[in-house]
């Protein structure tokens, strides 16, 4: 069953457009949504949440139209942006006081337990918190109403590796429940390698691929050599080519090349770089 289903989503701005975006996020999985800055990750997420109005296309969450049943759907969604968009004068305690009136399933003890776990003083104002603390508060808010779906828009950007690891552990704990789903947008691909089941790559407003992470990492490989040596590679195996100071690199499809070629497993970051900067042969 799909938690999020997007078909032919279009959204245009004067200088940028999302074109023909289609992908599914299966229930019980973590989808890593990757792409360079300005590729369209946040725009897609905002369209899903109806914060931006789509031009056309179909978006369904838990099988319901995201606009027609917006209020009902949003009871089960927790959102974490790359900042904490609450007025700076508010304290954690005050945020809890009004948020618990907004969600039917708001769990005050859980909220305070998370604040305690993160060592956040509930009486501190938002403006007095460090960036890491703000993100932890944002995650506590997102978790406190027991969402089924977490939509995370760059939640770990600008955080140090220790805080990032702590936060990723929380998401992994959240995924212990089979009914839970995460759409995790990030350009920190190492985070996604840790927790994502599928990877959707967006580039210049278009989806390049949306694939199971393991399939992706096993299907593709990186070959390195000289331009002359590259002539030996079968044409159909070459997906993208990059020429550098130290030779030529090719992103190849493993199934088309013999084992005699020296290849290595790519990282998501390398896949991203090949698909955005590599030449098509």
């Amino acid at each position: 069953m799909t938690a999020i289903s997007i078909r032919n989503l279009h959204k245009s701005f004067p200088a940028f457009a999302l074109r023909n975006i289609s992908f599914d996020v299966q229930k019980g999985t973590v989808m890593g949504f990757v792409g360079e800055n300005g590729a369209g990750k946040s725009t897609t997420i905002k369209c899903i949440l109806n914060v931006l109005k789509k031009d056309r296309g179909l978006i369904e969450i838990f099988g319901h139209d995201h606009v027609e049943e917006e209020v009902k759907i949003k009871e089960d969604i927790g959102v974490v942006y790359d900042d904490l968009p609450f007025p700076e004068m508010l304290t954690g305690k005050e945020i809890e006081k009004f948020m618990h009136k907004l969600y039917k399933k708001w769990d005050s003890p859980l909220f305070y337990q998370l604040l305690n776990q993160f060592k956040i003083d509930p009486s501190k104002k938002v403006k007095e918190l460090s960036r890491g603390m703000k993100m932890k508060l944002s995650i506590s808010i997102a978790f406190a109403h027991h969402p089924k779906l977490l939509i995370l828009d760059e939640p770990t950007s600008g955080l140090d590796p220790i805080v990032r690891d702590e936060i990723l552990d929380l998401f992994l704990t959240f995924m212990q429940d089979d009914n839970h789903t995460i759409l995790f947008s990030s350009h920190i691909t190492s985070d996604l390698e840790k927790i994502a089941d599928t990877i959707t790559f967006i580039h210049e407003g278009e989806i390049v691929f949306s694939e199971n992470k393991d399939v992706l990492l096993y299907d593709y490989a990186i070959w390195k050599g000289s331009p002359d040596e590259m002539k030996d590679l079968p044409e159909e195996a070459i997906v993208r080519v990059r020429k550098g100071v130290f030779g030529t690199e090719a992103l190849v499809r493993k199934k088309y090349i013999s084992r005699i070629f020296p290849i290595k497993r790519p990282t998501i970051e390398e896949l991203m770089v090949f698909f955005t900067k590599g030449e098509i042969r």
Partner: peptide, 15 residues
């Protein structure tokens, strides 16, 4: 205050 904190992009994710 709403504008400064970009509250609306969050407010619109609430039920």
């Amino acid at each position: 205050f709403d504008e400064m904190s970009k509250w609306d992009k969050y407010g619109l994710t609430l039920p």
